[in-house]
């Protein structure tokens, strides 16, 4: 049985994000297709673990997602699940974010399965779809070893200078937390 990490949010009492990590996944593309077809629960995300070096980015993106969920403006994407993936990317391009951080590609072999849960809310559908993922379960602590550092750096545009003063995780979290202001296309 895979070990599930429960992330609780100080700012959103009652909400948790459950996360599981799988490596050597053989059917990522299939699961990705299910997501795209809208066949998976709306609170569930399937994330390409290659671009996530730590749990903290998940936490920051999750916090952002829940804040958007509670705000008047609402979510940018359609579901909580996709919003989490979108927020992880640190960019404003929804499609680009979903293709990059989603799993709908042949060469995606490590996957994070994450789903939001709200205390006291009976779910008509459980967010946990671990049964669908064909791979071996790992611990969330293994994220760092599964991440492709070169790709993380090129996606988030992290320079040597910045990395000399700060950890990779911090560089990534900075971009997730501040994404509303960093993307040049954002305008006013």
């Amino acid at each position: 049985m895979a070990s599930t990490e429960t992330i609780t949010f100080e700012s959103h009492p009652g909400w948790t994000l459950q996360a599981r990590f799988f490596r050597d996944v053989t059917n990522a593309e299939e699961v990705g297709n299910l997501i795209v077809a809208g066949k998976l629960p709306v609170k569930t995300s399937v994330i390409n673990a290659k671009l996530v070096p730590d749990v903290l980015p998940l936490y920051a993106a999750g916090d952002k997602t829940l804040r958007a969920h509670k705000s008047q403006k609402g979510l940018t994407t359609r579901t909580l699940g996709s919003e989490l993936v979108f927020n992880l990317s640190g960019s404003k391009h929804i499609r680009e974010a979903l293709t990059k951080f989603g799993v709908k590609s042949k060469d995606c072999t490590s996957v994070i399965l994450a789903w939001f849960e709200k205390e006291g809310e009976m779910e008509e559908e459980g967010g946990d779809v671990s049964g669908l993922v064909k791979g071996s379960a790992g611990a969330m602590a293994d994220l760092a070893s599964a991440a492709d550092i070169a790709e993380v750096r090129s996606h988030y545009n992290i320079t040597d200078e910045e990395l000399s003063t700060s950890s990779l995780t911090d560089c990534v979290v900075f971009r997730i937390g501040a994404k509303d202001f960093l993307d040049k296309k954002s305008g006013k």
């Binding site: 952002k64 804040r67 910045e162 979290v173």
Partner: peptide, 21 residues
């Protein structure tokens, strides 16, 4: 936020922004 990002890219230590609301 932008100032901090720029400074970091120039190799200057700043606090890590965790969230902007």
């Amino acid at each position: 936020v932008k100032g901090m990002m720029k400074a970091r890219k120039l190799g200057i230590r700043t606090p890590t922004v965790l969230l902007v609301d």
